[in-house]
Design a protein around this nucleic acid. Structure first.
Lengths: 204, 204
DNA sequence: CCTAAAGTCACCCGATCGAGTGACCGATAT
DNA sequence: ATATCGGTCACTCGATCGGGTGACTTTAGG
């Protein structure tokens, strides 16, 4: 399954503890560790772990803030909060912001295993394969020929004017198709449109 | 193999003739037809045929000009020029511009078959799989962590300022990483950078 | 029959981008 | 010992982008 986990806690002891426990689980392929919320935000896009275990209380950016920012930049991130026990308020806030669950730091290996299984199972409700996960929700949008041609031009680094020249259209017309394309894909700019184009297999 | 061919000739009779002949070849999956150079340029990005058969002499945009424009926008296109026999000058010009070969319009089915086999075989010298073909030449560039993070942000539709906020960097710093990223990928803007990101598997 | 969708083109406007340049720092390589 | 590379930040400038709006036409659908 190549399941990877990113553990974040300011205490090296806790990180090592989780790393060791997680390594004993057969479904976990790789475990990496971070010591701060900032580090999590920096590493997430590089490692793209399947699950992030995030301590609630940390110096600097707390786990709740880190969860919030992580969710806003990566809505598909799977986050499980770690708590010592008494910060119920922070946990519930993080869960409202998108964390999938919580767990006490002093869990047994058995509890850890069942929690991870549960979280990964709920992941399995999603399309499943990596690459499917990044797809925006809902059914694939239907693009017109023009929209596909414009998207294709964008992916080749062409400006709207250049695309117009290639397709024998005015730049303004290209912009109209581009605007409709963005709406259909839910993209905010051409870079994101190209990304969605690949994820929906409009581009190769 | 799902090999597809796009035939372009201003004469419907010639188009139909090639369509029929090509259909008898087992390695050809699908044949589509166009009646002008403009149509070829418009349809290519939509159909992405494996081979384009292009008549040299056509009203409006000639086959040579069409080949030139097609190659400039799609360097990986495989083009075979079709000639009645006397336009050697145009054929050689098209070949210099990127066409893979030429063929007389009155070829027998056997000659057609051997030419297609040859062209498809020389295609096989390339990486092979669709999706590999679109990769820029050379070895995959080595991106730094920052460059990957910036690329990731771009694929999510973030502006440079937003990426800066996510990574705790100034917008100017993000722009510097973006510029270096473009250089390494050979991209002219963020949309193309994202496209290359997917093709090099930096993005998913 | 009329509406909706797609295609075409135009004008305005503020935000963003990308190029170019220069600079300082630390680590690594030569 | 010095050069290179990656990371950081700043400033300028012209080009491009994306939003908003409106309008005309054709085709398809209800």
């Amino acid at each position: 399954m190549t399941t990877t986990v990113l553990v974040c806690d300011d205490s090296p002891a806790v990180r090592e503890s989780f790393r060791k426990s997680l390594s004993t689980l057969s479904e976990i392929e790789r475990v990496t560790a971070a010591g701060s919320g900032e580090e999590v935000l920096a590493r997430y896009p590089l490692e793209r772990p399947d699950v992030v275990l995030l301590d609630v209380q940390m110096p600097g950016m707390g786990g709740v803030e880190a969860a919030k920012r992580l969710v806003s930049s990566h809505p598909d991130a799977t986050i499980v909060m770690l708590t010592m026990g008494e910060d119920v308020d922070g946990v519930s806030e993080a869960i409202e912001d998108g964390a999938r669950g919580y767990m006490a730091k002093n869990v047994s290996v058995e509890e850890l295993a069942s929690t991870m299984t549960l979280v990964l199972a709920s992941n399995a409700e999603l399309p499943g394969q990596r690459g499917e996960i990044n797809r925006p929700g809902g059914r694939p949008p239907v693009l017109t020929e023009r929209e596909q041609q414009v998207l294709d031009g964008m992916s080749r680094g062409r400006s709207n004017a250049e695309i117009g020249r290639e397709l024998f259209l005015s730049e303004d017309t290209v912009k109209t198709h581009a605007r409709r394309l963005f709406r259909k894909l839910g993209a905010s700019d051409r870079a994101q449109a190209v990304a969605f184009g690949f994820r929906w297999s409009f581009l190769r």
